[in-house]
């Protein structure tokens, strides 16, 4: 495992911890999109189908369990926890899941490396992860006051994607790593979705202002 991959995974882990910290400690999920969280739960559930049948390393299994556990517990908190659910911006979080899930599923049926159940599900999870942040970005744009933790959560998620691209470039040159165009293209699309957010994040950081996205 190279340094970019490890840094990417740790950034991903940090993003989840920041979100859990906000929800668990402050008992608030204001500004967090439940739609995006449900999509991530679906992404991990469909990607890690072989978690107990295909062993890679203890690190790998542990991280998979963390991502599965954290995504489902965040969804549970936002839907069921009697205090946390009150802070959910339901009226603002209106993005339709199905507009993302259905096209991703159809695309996975058509464009995949092997037409098997596991492979189609794995491909679907890659396509869905690429666009799963969209409801969150739409919600951020509608929310006038983005709190620090929510801003950091999205920033860390975007950072994780950027580091994965460096990881693929590194692997390409050092390991004769087989190029999976599906992984590369959906990963690139996903990272580009954060470009706009990054621009305003750095802008507010540089000027020491509160993060606000233009309407």
């Amino acid at each position: 495992m190279n340094i970019f991959r490890l840094a990417g995974d740790m950034t991903h882990l940090a993003s989840v911890l920041v979100l859990l910290l906000k929800i668990h400690t402050i008992k608030s999920c204001a500004g967090v999109s439940l739609k995006t969280q449900e999509l991530y739960a679906l992404v991990f559930a469909t990607r890690y189908l072989d978690i107990f049948t295909h062993f890679i390393s203890i690190y790998n299994t542990l991280m998979k369990l963390i991502f599965l556990g954290s995504s489902f517990s965040i969804v549970w908190y936002m839907r069921r926890h009697k205090i946390v659910r009150r802070s959910y911006d339901k009226e603002q979080d209106t993005f339709r899941h199905l507009f993302l899930i259905l096209p991703c599923f159809l695309l996975a049926l058509v464009i995949n490396e092997r037409f098997t159940f596991k492979e189609v599900m794995w491909t679907f999870s890659l396509y869905l992860e690429a666009v799963a942040i969209l409801p969150q970005l739409v919600l951020l744009q509608r929310t006038r006051n983005i709190d620090n933790l929510t801003g950091q959560y999205v920033f860390l998620l975007g950072g994780y994607r950027a580091l994965y691209i460096l990881n693929w470039i590194y692997r390409y040159f050092t390991e004769q790593h087989f190029v999976h165009w599906i992984t590369w293209i959906s990963g690139l699309v996903q990272t580009l979705l954060y470009a706009d957010f990054f621009y305003y994040y750095f802008h507010s950081w540089k000027n020491n202002e509160k993060l606000q996205l233009p309407a």
Partner: peptide
């Protein structure tokens, strides 16, 4: 196999 090597990623 080459198809599996990318699946060591999360």
């Amino acid at each position: 196999s080459s198809n599996d090597d990318v699946k060591d990623e999360l």
